[in-house]
Every structure is written in C-alpha cells, then in structure tokens.
C-alpha cells in the first residue's frame, strides 16, 4: 500500500493502483485514474459501467465479473471491451475506486 496524490487528494492505493478505501473516491478521482489509463473523456457509457460496478461492490461486497456486467449493467460485453480495453472488469473497478476483482476461489 502506498499513498498517492490523485486529482489533488491523498489516497491509499495497492501495488496495482486500486484504491484501498472506496470512501476516498469521487468523480474527479475516477476521471484522473481513467485519464491515466488512456480513457479520456469518460463518456456516459463509461460512467454507467463504473457506477454500476461501484454500487454492486458497495451493496454486495464483491465486484461483478465481466459476464455479470454484460448481463446487468446495460452495456453488452463486446462494448465493455471497447470502452475499457484489455480487461474491462479490472479497469472499471480501478476507476470505480473499489478493490481488484478476484475470481471466486
């Protein structure tokens, strides 16, 4: 864990840049993390996924998988890959300020 300054705020992140404390997150932190990952600007579709991801994590304690995202976020899996290249679940989780999604074991 290290402390980083993102969008002018001191936030605690793990080795891969995931926020340790979701409470340190806001829209500006999200926008800054996204920009750093090459996503600029954050469109409405990006926000739809990021907010769904964050709400799911905060209410259930675990981040949705790509497949759950594709079924429930309103954004199909193919589009998820266009919005968040390479690993949508991981990248969207990082932008959403929640821990890195792990598999189920």
């Amino acid at each position: 864990m290290t402390t980083q300054t993102i969008a002018g705020r001191d936030v605690t992140v793990d080795e891969e840049g995931f926020l340790a404390d979701p409470a340190q997150w806001d829209d500006e932190v999200a926008t800054a993390i996204a920009r750093d990952a090459g996503i600029d600007p954050m469109t409405d579709r990006h926000w739809q996924v990021v907010r769904y991801m964050r709400d799911t994590y905060l209410s259930t304690g675990s981040a949705p998988t790509i497949r759950s995202l594709g079924k429930a976020s309103g954004v199909p899996v193919k589009e998820l890959y266009q919005l968040f290249p390479k690993g949508p679940a991981k990248l969207a989780a990082r932008i959403a300020g929640i821990p890195k999604p792990r598999g189920c074991i």
Partner: peptide, 12 residues
C-alpha cells in the same frame, strides 16, 4: 510490512 502513511510514492 505495509507502510500506509509514507509520503507520496509511485505505485509499482
């Protein structure tokens, strides 16, 4: 050991 209050560092 996980230093959490060290000054700003780049994450690896």
């Amino acid at each position: 050991t996980t230093p959490t209050t060290t000054p700003t560092e780049e994450a690896g």
